[in-house]
Design a protein around this nucleic acid. Sequence first.
DNA 1: ATATTGTCTATCAAAATTATAGACTAATCA
DNA 2: TGATTAGTCTATAATTTTGATAGACAATAT
Lengths: 133, 133
Amino acid sequence: MKLTTKSEYSLLALTYLARHQKRGYIRMEDIADQYGISKKYLEQIFISLKQARYITTKTGAGGGYKLTIPADQISLAEIIRLMDGALAPTVAASKYFFEHTPLEKEEKIMQVFKEIRDYISGKVEGMKISDLV
Amino acid sequence: MKLTTKSEYSLLALTYLARHQKRGYIRMEDIADQYGISKKYLEQIFISLKQARYITTKTGAGGGYKLTIPADQISLAEIIRLMDGALAPTVAASKYFFEHTPLEKEEKIMQVFKEIRDYISGKVEGMKISDLV
DNA sequence: ATATTGTCTATCAAAATTATAGACTAATCA
DNA sequence: TGATTAGTCTATAATTTTGATAGACAATAT
């Protein structure tokens, strides 16, 4: 029932970028140090975030990363879905990542998981990176 | 944010046992067939459920599995915790499976995840196998 | 030029997930 | 009693996911 570090680190990194926006470009190493995360691992996460257009980068001295989208327009939901997929406890109960599983045969269980899905969605759709700063 | 098949299959199997209680001992193969699950894989799941005293078994013809605990006294929460661990989206927000992670540095995120944890707990603690039948 | 910082591609180790195999044990019942 | 049925136990294996590491390269600033 868990998120992976990809989601976790993404949320941390984006929060850090939002918090230090006025400093302009932020070095990856600052973020890695701040949270005690592997720099090289974080790099790969940043590449995904960049491809998804959440951040832009600048190479060289004084370079680093910064947000391209206002922090109040980035929901936790979209970051978690990008990194980890379904918010629902099982894909059989997922809207965006639906797949068939044996669980579908049991309607009552499905109902429980859909309610959990809806609660989680509501929570993390409504919550923005700016709310975390 | 997902459960594994161990939790899913456990819930399915216990629901099936509860539903067919009056038939006495139920063969593993019946359950495997019903849901299209590997028999051998289900076997291992049953061993865990047996060790945790949810079911008893009987070998030989006419044998199989049955519940030892009334279905209305088995919550989904305990089965999921047994099979998959934490209900919380991250162990940093878990009561039973707490571990330190970098996420702890961000209180607002932690707050969100704790609220999700509490919702999920409330939901699956309150829901019993008998409610699924 | 040189130091700084990100990019890209490959690769890898460990763990978790999802099984499969097969010999063994216990119970039934004909 | 012996054939059949059904669970037990232990090992191992395939695949995927997770969480990283390595190193050559490219862009920028001073």
